[in-house]
Structure formats: C-alpha cells, structure tokens
C-alpha cells in the first residue's frame, strides 16, 4: 500500500486535495494528528476478523491523500463495526472511527452506499424514523396498553436536511 503513495522513485507525493476535502467534514481533519502508533489496531474487531481492514493503514492512506483507495465502490470502510474502541485507545485523539464516518460522508456525496444503508437513510428521510410505520406496530403497542406511535413532523425534518446555500459545506 505504501508504494502507492510513492511516485517518481522514492519521493512520497501527498494528495492534499483529498485531505482538504475530507477536512471540510465534521472532525474530518483529525487524521492529521496520527503518528501511526497502531494503538487502534489491537482492539479493533474488524481488524481481527478481516485481513482487509486495518484502521492504522486507513489513517496512513488519509495522510498520503490516497482517496481513490477509500472513496470507491465496495469500500473497505464499511467493514468498520462502529465499536469506538479506536476512539477510546488513540493517544492522539484522532478518533479513527470519526475520520472513517467523515469519509463515508464523502462516499455519500459520491452516491455510493451499500444497499442496506441506502434503505435505512431513505426511510429516515421520508418518515423521520428508521423503522417504517405500519398499522401492525400500533396494534402490537395496544397489546401492551401503549398509545399509538406519536407522529413525527416530517416537514420539519426535511427542512433541517437541506444544506445551507453557502458556508455550510456538508
């Protein structure tokens, strides 16, 4: 992988455009503080159970600006279990999981999501909930003496999801 950051012989060429784009996301700039100690790897269940996923390597790719290897179909980023162990262990407060989620925001900008993710997002954006409403839900609630689900003002949610005209990069 490290060879990919090297062009023109041994000279490492960093793609700062990718890093600048990532830095515009909330907490997208944190990888800058990574000194590659690998504390994030030991406790990472995805790294333990997969040969493809290694949070230290992902942070290194970010430092080199190798966005093409991360922002693509079948991105390795989706192997992250979101367990937050790396966030807990990092001595530099890099929060690798947050850097990964910021890159998922870039994947979303490029319109690339796994199918299941796409579906949950669509349900949320159209109903304000991640579980689609159905009458059978209220029937089951009634069995426990619970009132019907309280309505979500979807119009308000939709207004919040509109990006600002300018100065609101995400």
């Amino acid at each position: 992988m490290a060879d990919n950051g090297k062009q023109n012989g041994d000279v490492v060429k960093v793609n700062f455009n990718f890093r600048r784009e990532l830095a515009r996301k909330v907490e997208g700039n944190l990888a800058n503080y990574c000194y590659q100690c690998g504390a994030c790897v030991g406790d990472c269940p995805a790294a333990y159970y997969s040969d493809e996923f290694n949070p230290r390597e992902i942070m290194l790719k970010v430092l080199y600006g190798l966005g093409d290897e991360l922002i693509r179909e079948d991105s390795v980023l989706w192997l992250c279990t979101n367990c937050y162990n790396c966030h807990e262990r990092c001595p530099q407060d890099v929060k690798p999981v947050e850097v990964i989620i910021s890159m998922k925001n870039m994947l979303a900008d490029a319109g690339i999501y796994p199918k299941g993710v796409d579906r949950v997002i669509a349900t949320f954006e159209s109903t304000g909930r991640t579980v689609p409403y159905s009458a059978s839900i209220d029937n089951r609630r009634a069995k426990f003496g619970l009132p019907p689900l309280s309505p979500v003002p979807v119009d308000e949610i939709k207004q919040l999801l509109e990006p600002a005209d300018k100065g609101d990069e995400s």
Partner: peptide, 25 residues
C-alpha cells in the same frame, strides 16, 4: 414530535451536519 435520534450508523454516515441538526432538534 421527537423523531429518530438520528441513528449513529446509517444517517450519520450520510451527512454529519444534517445528523447533528436533527439531533439538536
């Protein structure tokens, strides 16, 4: 009037600013 939090896995991975805005609501 409460909505989904929104969820920290799916919707957060789309757009953190929108995610924060709905959570703030």
């Amino acid at each position: 009037g409460a909505s989904c939090c929104p969820d920290p896995i799916y919707f957060k991975s789309k757009d953190k600013v929108s995610w924060l805005s709905v959570a703030a609501r």
